[in-house]
Nucleic acid binder design. Structure first.
Lengths: 109, 109
DNA sequence: CGTGTAAGGAATTCTGACACG
DNA sequence: CGTGTAAGGAATTCTGACACG
């Protein structure tokens, strides 16, 4: 029971950051920052250029949505960790609620 | 009955030429030349950079093999056209034989 | 015919830092 | 905390052309 399908190409790291920006609507700054916070893990080419897979792109779109909902990168980091431990359901429910509350108060400002 | 599978990502043109070189072992020059001969059709980014799909990469590896077998780009061009017309079998058989003969004589030189 | 290469320019990407808040 | 930006450098990509054969 895998969450992401194992189509030969989805995990190949071949897309450079500019193209990822176009696909996700995120800025380079945001994408690099999410890497710094260990939410995504691009490969590096010989000369040091970041290379992303389609699954990275999917992950980034998910991250973008959750950030909009008011979650913090630390929340998303925990989510990734707890996914590994199989405790996803209860954890993410809390975070979903917290995010929605955050978003609510942001709009009220 | 499609020859290439329709996995969401295989046809997305997101790979830049340098990465295609790494994936195929071909030079930039060769890849651009095969485009000039209308064997592949990359997209262009806003600023004019070529973007290839995984299916383009597969096509290039096929092209590379056939060029090694002694076929010419014009042969491969015909092959593509005849594929569209559904006359693939007889045509490609001739070309295969021609290619093998060419390769044979090349080695004899 | 198919491919290498030098040429010059334009666009891409990288890092570390300052800024705001 | 998350993101924008200016800075300077290095690597990428592009086109048109000459070369060999």
């Amino acid at each position: 029971m895998l969450s992401s399908s194992d189509n030969s190409y989805i995990h190949k790291k071949v897309i450079s950051i500019g193209t990822v920006c176009e696909l996700t609507g995120l800025s380079e700054r945001q994408i690099r920052y999410y890497e710094e916070r260990e939410l995504i893990f691009p490969k590096r080419s010989n000369k040091g250029n970041r290379k992303y897979s389609f699954s990275d792109v999917e992950a980034l779109m998910d991250i973008a949505n959750k950030m909009e909902d008011g979650l913090q990168t630390s929340d998303l980091r925990k989510e990734i960790t707890s996914k590994r431990l199989g405790e996803q359901k209860s954890e993410s429910k809390e975070q979903m609620i917290r995010g929605q509350l955050n978003a609510y108060f942001k709009r009220r400002q």
